[in-house]
Design a binder for these strands. Sequence first.
DNA 1: TTGACACATAACCAAAAGGTGTTATATTCT
DNA 2: AGAATATAACACCTTTTGGTTATGTGTCAA
Lengths: 107, 107
Amino acid sequence: MAAPAEKHDVFKAIADPTRREVLRLLSESERPISEIADHFDMSRTAVTKHLNILKEAELISGRKEGREKIYQLHPEPLTEVKQWLSYYERFWENKLSMLKHLVEDEK
Amino acid sequence: MAAPAEKHDVFKAIADPTRREVLRLLSESERPISEIADHFDMSRTAVTKHLNILKEAELISGRKEGREKIYQLHPEPLTEVKQWLSYYERFWENKLSMLKHLVEDEK
DNA sequence: TTGACACATAACCAAAAGGTGTTATATTCT
DNA sequence: AGAATATAACACCTTTTGGTTATGTGTCAA
């Protein structure tokens, strides 16, 4: 049975600065956990927890390679955030929309 | 000490579904607290807490009008999220070599 | 095959988040 | 003035989050 798409939703996943930094690191290149942990002032176990949350949000995935586990970025779920955000873009891109949006039937 | 001891960042503010729903409600029109609370299955007190978090993130503002407090959307801080996202957009829009292996299609 | 390495997992803890109800204050309407 | 309404402020409870240390499992290399 397929994993539930959003056990951890993306918004929660990116809410934490540490996790955002992890995503940035992985956007540069895939890395093993130890290399990721070196960038933070916390234990490797704590980093692993963050990685698991990101993995449940399907923002990263890990493959085993020998005794290392290499994590890599999966940016697709971020489209959900982008779509959510696009609804609000009109409010700052054209100021007049504060009146306009009243006529829209959203949802 | 101009900086508030606990400035809620935007990412944290939008991480909660209830708060995102509040933003959506306020995007339709400004509303008093009681009207917002009617949309949720929780106490008005709990809603007020969410409003305060949104206010600290400067996503909403409230003005007193008689005995009511009217809350209004301020979408500007969302630009921070948009900018953060734009860094990752290229990863799914331009198919950079690093992410070649990502062949998942969208729903 | 023994020992060091890389990671996972479990047990535990403190603090923050998210909820409740009650009381207090300010405003409006008779 | 007094009653009703809207919100703020306060105290408290429970769950989640983010971290720790300790221990276990699989892999590589001498």
